[in-house]
Nucleic acid binder design. Sequence first.
DNA 1: CGACACATGTAACACGTTACATGATTTG
DNA 2: CAAATCATGTAACGTGTTACATGTGTCG
Lengths: 198, 198
Amino acid sequence: MSVRQSLLAILDQGPCYGYQLRAEFERRTGGTWPLNVGQIYNTLDRLERDGLAAKGDTDEQGHVYWQITDAGRADVQRWLGAPVERPSATRDELAVKLAVAATLPGVDARALVRAQRTVSAARLAALTRTARTEQGGPEGLAGALVVDALVFAAEAELRWLDHAEQRLADQPANAFALELSDERPKRGRPVRAEASAA
Amino acid sequence: MSVRQSLLAILDQGPCYGYQLRAEFERRTGGTWPLNVGQIYNTLDRLERDGLAAKGDTDEQGHVYWQITDAGRADVQRWLGAPVERPSATRDELAVKLAVAATLPGVDARALVRAQRTVSAARLAALTRTARTEQGGPEGLAGALVVDALVFAAEAELRWLDHAEQRLADQPANAFALELSDERPKRGRPVRAEASAA
DNA sequence: CGACACATGTAACACGTTACATGATTTG
DNA sequence: CAAATCATGTAACGTGTTACATGTGTCG
């Protein structure tokens, strides 16, 4: 969703052609997330399908310019006006993995945590290095913002891993282990506690 | 990817039927991420297509049991053996949005940050409340692990938002603003600095 | 000329997600 | 009986992602 919305927001600044949109997106996000060009045209087609953008004129140089529509402008305003809501928290791949792994009887969860920690720490170090290298100027500022977000997230990941190892260490070896539940749940209407309305 | 892999890892514990898989997944992740049942059957079909699981026998009660295959077992081992690698950092929806928004001339980025902060703080508070309520026992432990991950992430998000507001406050109002770049990049082979190998 | 970047586009796929249809079973 | 849950499954869609085909213009 964020690519689509970002491209639309950029289109709101004025007509653009495909390659230009990619350049603008990468410029405004510090080049942290490279975009496959194909995705641009893809997304543009979908925006057109949804009536948020329209294929416009073609340059003397052959550049195909796209324009935002009124509906698109409204969509951008809605996007910028509303905070990002994570649907009961986006599933975090690492958290899912660790939680599931910790409940598997045969798995050494602590080893997993330690291995992950090494990788995550290396990533944080690399990010910190990047953060120091960030340039000045508007583009650099935006880029710094993004890198900071990644740094903060990486730090949180590390803290969580340490915290998780502590928890695992506090418990006997297989305290998290879960066998497959054999309970055959009874079908049918469950027993309700008390009377409901009317 | 995490749902798919998790289901496969659970299947590695023994044959399961659809509903059971959902129950196991939710049990092992503290019920934090509810799963639509349809997705289970969907995923099972895809696992079968990829040769990682196979449709097995049917119960007297009509339960359709699925089994993991050898290839599936190998896949689980690979999954558990390798750390989670974020492809140059998964795009963070909030970071993208804020970075792009900050570079749009007409947008009040600080207001955006403040609005987001309110929402994020509320989420953190709710999570903290959940964390306190977590139950004991293996399931509770796994659930606590997950909630902790969310708490750490939410804290990082808040810290980043504050940090971002600081950065925005330090700069003159439109320091981040970026016009559409008018540079028409020249086509053709770019000028290389020096000679390359061979 | 050949390599390479610019530029547009198509086709397919992956995973996740939801809506819907169907039926059995149990309980109020 | 009616309602609710358990249970299986189908069909469609959305975004993101990649591979591929095609062509143009420039520079060495």
